[in-house]
Amino acid sequence: MNPESFRAIVHDWYDPLYRFALSLCRNPDDALDLTQSAFHKLAANAGRLREDNKAKSWLFSTLHREFIDHYRRSRRFPSTSLDLVAEPSHESPRPPGSSLDAADALELLDALDERYRAPLSLFYLESFSYKEIAAVLDIPIGTVMSRLRRAKDQLRARLENGAANPGESLPFPGKVDHG
């Protein structure tokens, strides 16, 4: 891996990796720690990773392992670093009627059992096939499918019961519509 390919990997996977980390630990500070740590480990192992296209799975597996080893049991008192201010999204506004925002989605994910949360988060990154999810989480393909099914059923049930009430939710930066 050369510096250019490392830069390209950071460009491609920084946001999705951070998104995955945030869905796991729900704390922006910890999510950034996990994301940076995964990339630093990739840099440290650059010589051993022969194929750049393996970097994606390697990064997500590494981050997930670190979450399990160091973060899962230590949800510290939530506080977000002042230096850590997320960039607002610059994408075009979501179509009318699509009321689920990022905060709602994270709240809903957070309510899931961790066994379901990790595969579902990877699934919703959309660049992960069920085979890749199985490889990252080190679980059988059939388990991925059954966990995705149960996770989605739980999500739907919570949404339909109003667990994440869009009317009371906090609009995501850049998507505020005060109509």
Partner: peptide, 23 residues
């Protein structure tokens, strides 16, 4: 709908810069 909502989340730019500083 769910994937679109999550896709709005961006990591802090400073974090990316810090990683690239290790190049």
């Amino acid at each position: 709908r769910f994937a679109d909502a999550l896709a709005d989340i961006r990591g802090p730019a400073k974090g990316r810069e810090s990683i690239l500083a290790t190049l």
